[in-house]
Write a protein that binds this DNA or RNA. Structure first.
Lengths: 155, 155
DNA sequence: TGAATTAGCACCAAAACAGTGCGGTATCGA
DNA sequence: TCGATACCGCACTGTTTTGGTGCTAATTCA
């Protein structure tokens, strides 16, 4: 399906929320509880998603009371592509394109597959789109202004 | 998952094959057997996929011996977006965007969802990409030349 | 008539996804 | 020091989607 998973969706909500808080309270950690108090998302899921984002260096975490998460980098430098990759992996558009072709079947058409290279082109364009969409561009205007693109708000 | 289904993949292979045959034998019907003789695709699946494409007016079908499928329109006027829509529906990028919000849960975040409209923008871009990719552009160069864009090969 | 083909129905197995339980570990504040 | 609060990690379950199959009917050509 050409659709983002719920995990990615939750990740986006969380990241936007963290960015918003960060704009007000620079350096403050946002806990998972904060997020699911505001949005009806299972706490467990948020934790799981944030963990994945942390492992991909998109957020930093801090334990203990007053702990939580902060953006590891400026919203300008975090892309939608990175977020999707962190939460879903970087799946090929079709099975033809899988790097490990024959894992569970894979593309048996391989050498005679007529759509491999054209679809590859489309895939490149699609990921280009995701790579050129920054987290900043997903923020509400007010917050967006706070993270001025040139202000080098690298945290 | 941000990935096309196997059905769509098979559909693309089938359409490309039909277009290639059509370039040689204009007006000849291509049977499902022809397709899965050439590519290792379950015959049943091809039939199912082609049926869906037929219902969406992308191919025309003919029963009986010498029967099969032909493109209903010129490859130039068939877009990747139409193919995906025919085989997978037109799924929203995130559940927030579902027209029928609360079908099976849907987006409970609704009014407070901070990512709905920005994600909607991204979705528009993505589908724009698919809508601007024609079947013709997916064909091998030789066949592509046969379906010259201006030649009004509308069959 | 008979063979070849699409059409339509329901059905099954495997995989991915969404969500949960439980216990462990780090950290801050009193 | 103690306890509350928060993240961490593993495994597990139920549901949905996906991929694939069986069988039969309807259509068409030789």
């Amino acid at each position: 399906m050409l659709q983002l998973t719920k995990r990615t969706e939750y990740g986006l909500i969380a990241l936007v929320h963290i960015a918003e808080r960060g704009a007000v309270d620079a350096g403050a950690f946002v806990s998972a509880r904060d997020i699911c108090d505001r949005y009806p998302i299972p706490r467990r899921l948020v934790a799981e998603v944030l963990k994945a984002l942390q492992k991909n260096d998109l957020v930093e975490s801090q334990r203990g009371p007053t702990g939580g998460y902060v953006l590891a980098r400026s919203p300008e430098s975090i892309t939608l592509g990175q977020i999707v990759t962190a939460l879903e992996g970087a799946p090929p558009l079709t099975s033809c394109e899988s790097p490990i072709l024959l894992k569970s079947g894979g593309c048996e058409v391989h050498s005679v597959c007529p759509i491999r290279s054209p679809v590859h082109r489309v895939r490149e364009q699609l990921w280009g789109l995701l790579e050129h969409t920054s987290l900043r561009s997903l923020l509400p205007p007010a917050t967006q202004a706070h993270y001025a693109p040139r202000a080098a708000h690298a945290r």
